[in-house]
Design a protein around this nucleic acid. Structure first.
Length: 494
RNA sequence: GCUGCUAUAGUGUAGUCCGGCCAAUCAUGUCGGCCUUUCACGCCGACGACUGGGGUUCGAAUCCCCAUAGCAGCACCA
C-alpha cells in the first residue's frame, strides 16, 4: 500500500536495517580463515568462554575454513583432568563447528625444537637470575648477566634444563625483546620454565613452555589467520609479536574484545571448585554458577547463548553482561515450542460448592491448538495458589473451568460456583488462575537461584522430563526429574 | 607507580575510520494501553544516552587537546 503510494518514502525510511547479530567483516578473510578456541582445561566452560567460542565459530562459518580447539594444558597446576572431557562436551552443546582438536601437552617436542631455533637466532637465552633481582633489572631497563651469553652456551644450558640439571625455579628461557620497551611487561619475558613439584596428568615433563611462547608457535604452525580474544591479552599480543619477529613469521590478524562482567554469578573456576568442594554448590551445574552446564540445566538453549553473544559482538568496550538480554533471546526460542502446564505454588486446598464434576481441557499451546489439550477432572475440590486468596478478592475464574465466588468461613477460604461465562470474569477484570484437582497432583519443587518454591503440578509433568515447559502465570521451567513421587523443575526465566 | 585500552539511555548495541542525511539506530528493560480463558506470545505508545571541559570548523557523537572514570598488563598463569 505505502509502497504504491510513496515508493520513495519507504526506501528513505529504511536506514540500514542492520542485523542485530551481524559481526563486522574480518580483513583478508575472503579466501577462508583458520581460527581457534584455546581454553585452559581447568574446568567446565562458562559464559566468558562462550563468547570467545561463539565469535570464532561464527566467523569460521561465515568465511569457511578450519576451527581448531586447542587445549592449553601447559601448566599442570591449572589442569583439571576432568576438563579433557567436559570442555569438548560443552563445546558440542554450544554447537561450535570444531574441525580439529589439538592438545598442547602433545607438542612439547615441537616447542623444545622451536626454543633451540629461537636461541640460534639470538632471540632467547637461559636465565638463572633470582626472580626479584630480575624484576629490579627489568624496571631499570638493564640487561641481566645471563643476557649476554653466547648462542652455544645458551643452547647447552637449555639442553641442561631439559636434562634436569636445574631445579624448579632455577632457570628459565627468556625471549630477548627490547629492554627499552615503554611497557615493562614486554621486557625479556619468559618462554619456558622448570616445574617438577606438580606432575602433569597426561605427560612426563619438567620443562614447560609459557603461554606466550606456545601460543605464538602454535598459532603460526597451525596456520591461524585470525585470533579473536579478550582485551586482557593485548599485552600478550605485543609480547608474541617479538616471537613472530625472531622467526620472521607473519602474525595473524588480532582482534581483542572488551572485558565482560557478569552480574550475580561466580565465574572464577577456582572459586567455583572451592565452593563445590565445600558443599556450597551442588556441582558444576549448580544453577547459581555461570557454567554452560548450569545454563543447560536451567533450560537455556545453546542458540540463545549464541545469539546473546552475537548481539554483544566484538566491541572493545568493557561490558556488563545482563541476564535479561539472554533470557529474552531464550524466551523467543522457547515460547513457541514449550508446552503449557499448570504449577500451583504454595497450594491451598479449597472446596467448591454448587458445581457438579466436569473436565477441563486446557490447550497445550495457545498459539497452536493442533497440539491438543490436557484433561483435568474437576470433582469438587481444588488447589489454588495461596497468593490468589490473599487479598480482598471476591471473584475468581478457574482457568478453562468456571467462575467462583470467594468467601471466608471460619478463617478458611471457600469457593462457590458463579457461572461459566468467561465474559463475566473479563468484565469484572478478575484474575484467571491455574488450579488443579485436589486428588490429581504431583508434588513439584520449583528451584530458582534465589530459593525453592514448593508446589504441585499436573501429572503430565512426568512426560516432560528434560524439556522446557511453561508453567502458566509462573514462568518457563525445565523439568529436571519427575515421577509419581514428585518432580523437580528449574525456573528458566519468566 | 609504570604501560596501554575503552568511554552512546538501567543493560547490550548501531553510528565514530571518510564531520552535515543523528532533534542519534535496534534490542532488552520499565510504565501505560490493546489482544488473549497465563502475569507468556503478539501489537501500539511512552520513558531513557553521545563522561566533563576546552579547541578546530559555517557545522562535531564523529577530528585535536586536557581532565575524569572503568578495565587490563607489569607472573617461572592462561
Amino acid at each position: 500500500m505505502l509502497q504504491a503510494l510513496a515508493p520513495g518514502l519507504l526506501e528513505a525510511r529504511e536506514p540500514v536495517q542492520r542485523d542485530r547479530y551481524a559481526l563486522p567483516p574480518l580483513p583478508d578473510a575472503e579466501k577462508g580463515v583458520v581460527m581457534r578456541f584455546a581454553p585452559n582445561p581447568s574446568g567446565p566452560l562458562h559464559l566468558g568462554h562462550a563468547r570467545a567460542a561463539v565469535l570464532n565459530d561464527v566467523y569460521v562459518r561465515r568465511y569457511g575454513g578450519r576451527y581448531i580447539l586447542r587445549i592449553e594444558d601447559t601448566d599442570p597446576k591449572r589442569v583439571d583432568p576432568g576438563a579433557y572431557e567436559t570442555v569438548p562436551e560443552d563445546i558440542r552443546w554450544l554447537g561450535c563447528g570444531i574441525t580439529e582438536t589439538v592438545y598442547q601437552s602433545d607438542r612439547l617436542e615441537v616447542y623444545y625444537d622451536h626454543a633451540r631455533r629461537l636461541i640460534e637466532r639470538g632471540g632467547g637465552y637461559v636465565c638463572t637470575c633470582d626472580n626479584d633481582r630480575f624484576r629490579e633489572l627489568r624496571l631499570a631497563r638493564t640487561a641481566c648477566p645471563c643476557r649476554g651469553g653466547e648462542v652455544e652456551e645458551n643452547l647447552a644450558r637449555f639442553e641442561g634444563m631439559l636434562a634436569g640439571a636445574y631445579a624448579e625455579g632455577e632457570a628459565s628461557l627468556r625471549v630477548r625483546t627490547d629492554l627499552d620497551a615503554p611497557d615493562p611487561a614486554l621486557r625479556d619475558f619468559p618462554a619456558f620454565r622448570i616445574l617438577t613439584s606438580t606432575l602433569h596428568p597426561r605427560i612426563d615433563a619438567s620443562v614447560y613452555p609459557l603461554m606466550n611462547f606456545s601460543v605464538a608457535v602454535d598459532d603460526h604452525l597451525l596456520g591461524c589467520t585470525h585470533v579473536i580474544r579478550g582485551k586482557d591479552h593485548i599485552a600478550n599480543t605485543r609480547r608474541q609479536q617479538f616471537i613472530y619477529d625472531w622467526y620472521s613469521w607473519t602474525p595473524p590478524h588480532f582482534r581483542h574484545y572488551g572485558r565482560m562482567g557478569i552480574e550475580g554469578v561466580v565465574l572464577s573456576t577456582s572459586e567455583m571448585r572451592a565452593g563445590i568442594a565445600a558443599g556450597r554448590y551442588e556441582g558444576w551445574d549448580d544453577i547459581r554458577l555461570g557454567t554452560l552446564r548450569a545454563l543447560a540445566r536451567r533450560g537455556i538453549e545453546p542458540e540463545a547463548v549464541k545469539r546473546a553473544m552475537l548481539a554483544i559482538g566484538i566491541g572493545e568496550t568493557d561490558i556488563q553482561f545482563s541476564w535479561e538480554n539472554l533470557f529474552a533471546e531464550n524466551r523467543a526460542i522457547v515460547d513457541p515450542v514449550a508446552d503449557r502446564l499448570w504449577f500451583v505454588p504454595d497450594p491451598v486446598a479449597v472446596e467448591v460448592t454448587g458445581a457438579p464434576p466436569r473436565e477441563a481441557h486446557p490447550l497445550r499451546h495457545p498459539g497452536d491448538p493442533s497440539r491438543g489439550t490436557r484433561t483435568l477432572a474437576y470433582d469438587g475440590s481444588v488447589v489454588v495458589p495461596a497468593a490468589e486468596l490473599a487479598g480482598e478478592i471476591s471473584l475468581l475464574r478457574l482457568k478453562d473451568l468456571f467462575n467462583v465466588e470467594v468467601s471466608t468461613v471460619e478463617g478458611r477460604a471457600r469457593l462457590a460456583y458463579a457461572g461459566d461465562e468467561l465474559a463475566d470474569a473479563r468484565g469484572a477484570r478478575v484474575p484467571i488462575v491455574q488450579w488443579l484437582p485436589l486428588d490429581g497432583t504431583v508434588p513439584c519443587t520449583l528451584r530458582r537461584p534465589e530459593g525453592e518454591i514448593a508446589g504441585v503440578s499436573e501429572p503430565s509433568v512426568c512426560d516432560a522430563v528434560g524439556k522446557v515447559v511453561q508453567f502458566e502465570r509462573v514462568g518457563f521451567a525445565r523439568i529436571d526429574t519427575a515421577g509419581p513421587g514428585g518432580a523437580v523443575a528449574y525456573l528458566t526465566h519468566r
